[in-house]
Design a protein around this nucleic acid. Structure first.
Lengths: 347, 347
DNA sequence: CTGAAAGCGCTTACAG
DNA sequence: CTGAAAGCGCTTACAG
């Protein structure tokens, strides 16, 4: 006797739902209901079961769940394979929301078109995941009919799509806010635009939307942005350094620089400091993204609610998985201007 | 009757092993053996079963396999979240080898120490994967005892570890080969070193090994490398552009530049071309990595067998999963010098 | 609110 | 070489 505390029979020595049920003196169905937060469990029963789960260190086996439930309880996240903090935070948000619903996340880096095709057409998709979250690229437009070749629900994040639910940032608005802020400071205005690498498989439109909004608001204020006031570079801090070099050849300080990404803005700041220029007074720098380190570097920026967008996307997908019908829904998020010392004279 | 061609009962309408068995007129055990390449199946039987699988479009359900087999048939791949082609190719290699053995791969981006701790300590590891492949960082040395807190097999790739099997490149050798090649060309020698970003959670030693070998071979040839002949930058093409600017302030062409990564070498080439300098004659540029695009750009480089290393790591892990015992094994790979127009006068 | 039972789609000894 | 059966650890109606 005392079977409740006997070593489980599986190789891993991990307790199973049966061990918990036996020790708690309930049926396995009840344990399952507790695990799945079913409301149809008496509080005392729930507490007892939870205590035993705790005591035994019980963790549900996700594979058993998948085969019994007939679903994978896993969501594919397709995202550009670039190591920016943005995707780190986006994943945190997605993962947090999915985790609360006991869903797993399978990362699929968008490395090449071939890989994407293979992924979508393969049996991997059919079996492995219940739905897709696609980050940053409107992949749908690359396929006939504007829909991905899958019957699983799809949600876009950091991109807008006509065909699917999406959680996206109003990048053009951010550009406009940037223009308003820099115009208020007075002085000439420059911008650093980020261009996609040529060999990259997919193209994002966020950077051009940001500069587009920027240019538009400047034009509305009667301040045109000459072509040589816009420097184009790939996404890197060194690109920002080079940009400032160019601007300094054209214009003596003080002047203002809007960089379409914080990483690039950081390079502008670095180059200014290295040139002995006072950032915030002689060169004012405004970034975009709101990365965590901008606070300590005193970099003004347009902050995006990245984690929130991630959670929103995950939530929409889960709703679809739970059967929500209807036309595509779009959640629009707004960037928030955060003013720090890089665009205001310290004192 | 005719149950062989009836619609399957699962929601997804996917045929199961039972459908295949019925239609092929064999037991499900036999179908399972065919799937798993068991030698204990008569060729004719195998052919018949395979034909039916083909006809029905049967794909085994990995989740069922996992629960019946008591293993996850999944390997965790922990890798830096940087979007370089290197990791793309490494993953291709790993995935190819794992796929042949019917193993899945779960990507785990090394974003922060917190996430790593959480991953290693969580039940995720216990259930989700049978083993780990760790890329580029010797994570083991970060833990007490020099071992990761897991009893699953671990293999390192693009890094060497005392505690685990590893497949790694001899980066120092690459640096030495680079030195020999550039010395043979004659003229002053410069180098671009890549430094890790400060905020990055983990540190790789590959770049310093490359420059270390380079410096060592130069010293042996009686050619010291002055400190101002080494430019340090983060990993970006723009960093290479800035490096060449600096070198041109110190030295008039012709001279030679060794960049510790192809991406940075590309920037050197771009800057040289923009300055009207003839690459290969006035500025000779040698990269490191052997990325696919170096061929079309005519960039000389030290090519690493990336896919091969990935496969080797995956193979070692699979062997461990199949029960291979013994001390850590180390597979050392050598870079190969590929000479193109960037280090030889075209004619 | 709860238990007992069937079933998810496989793998794996066990017999033949 | 092959089949029938047990079992993996869950979820889910189905009764009560």
């Amino acid at each position: 006797m005392g079977n409740g505390s006997k070593a489980p029979k599986n190789g891993r020595n991990a307790p199973t739902i049966a061990d918990v049920a036996a020790r708690a003196g309930v049926g396995i169905g009840t344990v399952s209901r507790v695990i799945n937060n079913s409301p149809a469990v008496r509080p005392e029963t729930r507490a007892k079961v939870q205590a035993v789960m705790e005591e035994l260190g019980y963790v549900p086996n996700p594979h058993a769940r998948r085969i019994a439930g007939g679903r994978s309880y896993t969501v594919s996240v397709l995202l550009p394979f670039v190591g920016t903090e943005f995707y780190l935070r986006l994943l945190e948000g997605i993962e947090a929301e999915l985790g609360e619903q006991r869903y797993d996340l399978a990362l699929f880096p968008l490395l090449s078109k071939q890989r994407l095709e293979r992924f979508l057409s393969s049996s991997a998709l059919a079996y492995h995941t219940d739905g897709l979250i696609v980050a940053s690229y409107d992949l749908a437009e690359r396929f006939p009919g504007g829909r991905l070749p899958t019957d699983r629900p799809v949600v876009m994040v950091d991109a807008r799509s006509e065909a699917y639910d999406s959680a996206y940032l109003d990048n053009a608005l951010g550009g406009r806010l940037a223009a308003e802020h820099l115009l208020a400071l007075g002085g000439p205005v420059f911008a650093v635009q980020i261009e996609e690498e040529l060999d990259r498989a997919f193209a994002s439109t966020v950077f051009s939307a940001r500069i587009g909004g920027f240019r538009e608001a400047l034009a509305q204020a009667g301040v045109p942005l000459p072509e040589d006031h816009v420097f184009r570079t790939r996404l890197s801090a060194e690109g920002g350094q080079i940009a400032l070099q160019r601007f300094l050849e054209l214009q003596r300080p003080p002047f203002n620089v809007f960089a379409a990404a914080d990483v690039v803005a950081l390079g502008v700041v670095e180059a200014a400091e290295r040139s002995g220029l006072e950032v915030g007074r002689e060169v004012r720098v405004l970034g975009f993204d709101g990365q965590p380190w901008t606070a300590t570097r005193g970099l003004s920026t347009l902050e995006q609610p990245v984690e929130t967008m991630g959670r929103a996307a995950a939530r929409m997908l889960i709703e679809r998985l739970q059967g929500t019908e209807g036309p595509p829904r779009h959640e629009r998020f707004e960037p928030r201007l955060v003013v720090r010392s890089s665009t205001q004279t310290g004192f």
